[in-house]
Each structure stands twice: as C-alpha cells, then as structure tokens.
Amino acid sequence: MNKFTCTIILLCSLVVSTFAQKKKSYTETIDQISFDMIYVKGGTFQMGDRKGDLVLDTGENPSLPLREVKIDGFFVGKFEVTQALWESVMGSNPSELKVGNHPVESVSWNDCEEFIKKLNTLTGKDYRLLTEAEWEYVARGGKKHEKDKSSIENISSRAWVLNNADNTHQEVGTKAPNVLGIYDLQGNVWEWVNDWYAVDSYKKTGEDNPQGVQNGKEKAYRGGSFLSDENFCRPAYRNYDLPDIKQKFLGLRIGRSL
C-alpha cells in the first residue's frame, strides 16, 4: 500500500468518524447548567390527523390534508428549556412561577429567538426552534412511530395535563419519556416552533423537510400544557398566537440540524 492510498484511507476514516460524532447525542453546559441533546434519525411519517378540534367556520381542518412527510436527521432537546438554563443564558427568569428545573414560561416567540441567538454565541453552535413537522415527527416517536401508539393513547399517564398537574407546570422529566427518550413533549407547557401558522399550511408546503408558509401574523406552537385536556396534546394538534404574546403555559424546546 503506497503513501497516497494510506492518506486517502486516513482522510475517509476521519470523515466517517466526524459524521458519526455529529450524530451522537451529547450534553452541553452553560455556566454549570447542563442540557442534553438527543439525536433523532430521519425518516418519513404521516403528518396530520382527521380529528379536527380546530375545524373553523369555513369547515376547514388545519391538520389536513394527511400527507407523507420526509424528515432529515436532527438533534432535539431531551427536555423543555428550563428556567435555570434560560437564566444562565439571559441573566433573568421571566416565568410567572419561578422554579429552576421547571420549564421556562411567559416567553414570547420573539423572546425565544433572542435566547437562541445568545445561546449560539455562548456555544458556537446553531441551535434553533423545531419546525412543526420535526416536532410532530418526534412526538409520534420518529421512525418507531408505526409500532408505538402511546403518543395518542393514555396521554395523561405520561404527561402533565389538566387532570393531574394541579393547575401548574411541573419539574421537567418527572413523567415517563416517549420511545425516543424525550420528555414532556405532551403537556407541561406548550412549545413554540419556528413555523408561521396558516390554516392551509399543509396545502401550500412541500413534503420534504417542510418549513411551513414563509410569512404570516401568528407563530405555531405544539404539545399542550398543564391546562390542556388530553385531546389538545395530540401530536397533530396545532395552536398559534402572535409572536410577541407571553403566556404562563407557553415555553420552548430547542433543536439543531446536523
């Protein structure tokens, strides 16, 4: 084997090794506050459902049409962003009920963008909000969703919702995780996502890593909260508000592309 061949093999090994490292779940630490990022393998899934709690006066169901969506692999926060992490990045805690390891709340979509901008400056990485499609893919269990029905059955056994949360959010990670090892995707606090909201988003966007419509008045959020009935915690259920709105039941979870 000549020197040139050895060099090529070494370079290929380094590329493979680097790619493998990029796909490995990891822990990040900011000022002694750590958070975990879980690698989610890409795949396809059927996005939306026919239940249609938000059927509008027009008769439209914003969770239709059902469609097969392709998602590339990405990282997602194992937990909702906690008050402790938010304070370590931003220097203050905006939450109405201040308890360090509970999810941060009373943050607007605009606040979340500012948090992520500062987090990226501190870490040198490119964290972001999930897309609606990524969020739903994770909530359904990713590539394992066809074998796992827990995301739509007995939600209150795994989530802090109206009938068990005593009208307040709870410490993150105190209910069972989903099949991907990710906690509190349903219940506890709603989670802002990146997409602009539109009733007919699914008719206007593609099926390959959809990013939602390109403009609008409201931003989407997902997952339900401690004030939600189980029906509103279904993976397909869509909610929305103006990007400067702050609510005691509304927080975030971060993601990161490969």
Results as ranks from 00 to 15, higher is better:
Thr174His: 02
Thr174Ser: 07
Lys175Asn: 09
Lys175Trp: 06
Ala176Met: 13
Pro177Tyr: 08
Pro177Val: 08
Val179Gln: 10
Val179Ile: 14
Val179Met: 00
Val179Cys: 14
Val179Tyr: 00
Leu180Lys: 03
Leu180Gly: 04
Leu180Glu: 03
Gly181Ser: 11
Gly181Met: 08
Ile182Gln: 01
Ile182Asp: 02
Tyr183Pro: 00
Tyr183Met: 03
Tyr183Lys: 02
Asp184Thr: 07
Asp184Cys: 06
Asp184Gly: 03
Asp184Ala: 02
Leu185Ile: 11
Leu185Val: 05
Gly187Met: 07
Gly187Cys: 07
Gly187Trp: 06
Asn188Asp: 13
Asn188Trp: 07
Val189Tyr: 04
Val189Leu: 09
Val189Gln: 06
Trp190Asp: 11
Trp190Val: 11
Trp190Thr: 11
Glu191Pro: 05
Trp192Arg: 09
Val193Cys: 09
Val193Arg: 04
Asn194Trp: 12
Asn194Leu: 07
Asn194Met: 06
Asn194Arg: 12
Asp195Lys: 02
Asp195Ala: 08
Asp195His: 02
Asp195Gly: 05
Trp196Val: 11
Trp196Lys: 09
Tyr197Phe: 15
Tyr197Ser: 10
Ala198Asn: 12
Ala198Ile: 01
Ala198Cys: 02
Ala198Lys: 14
Ala198His: 13
Val199His: 06
Val199Pro: 01
Asp200Tyr: 06
Asp200Arg: 14
Asp200Glu: 12
Asp200Ser: 14
Ser201Gly: 03
Ser201Glu: 15
Ser201Thr: 15
Tyr202Ser: 05
Tyr202Cys: 05
Tyr202Val: 09
Lys203Arg: 13
Lys203Met: 12
Lys203Gln: 15
Lys204Asp: 13
Thr205Asn: 06
Thr205Gln: 08
Thr205Ile: 15
Gly206Ser: 12
Glu207Thr: 15
Asp208Phe: 10
Asp208Val: 14
Asp208Cys: 00
Pro210Glu: 05
Pro210Ser: 07
Pro210Trp: 05
Pro210Ile: 08
Pro210Val: 11
Gln211Cys: 01
Gln211Ile: 09
Gly212Cys: 10
Gly212Val: 12
Val213Cys: 07
Val213Gly: 10
Gln214His: 11
Gln214Trp: 03
Gln214Arg: 12
Asn215Lys: 10
Asn215Glu: 13
Gly216Asn: 08
Gly216Lys: 03
Gly216Cys: 08
Gly216Phe: 03
Lys217His: 01
Lys217Val: 13
Lys219Glu: 11
Lys219Asn: 10
Ala220Trp: 00
Ala220Ile: 14
Ala220Ser: 15
Tyr221Glu: 03
Tyr221Phe: 15
Arg222Asp: 00
Arg222Lys: 14
Gly223Trp: 09
Gly223Glu: 03
Gly223Ala: 08
Gly224Ala: 03
Gly224Lys: 02
Gly224Gln: 06
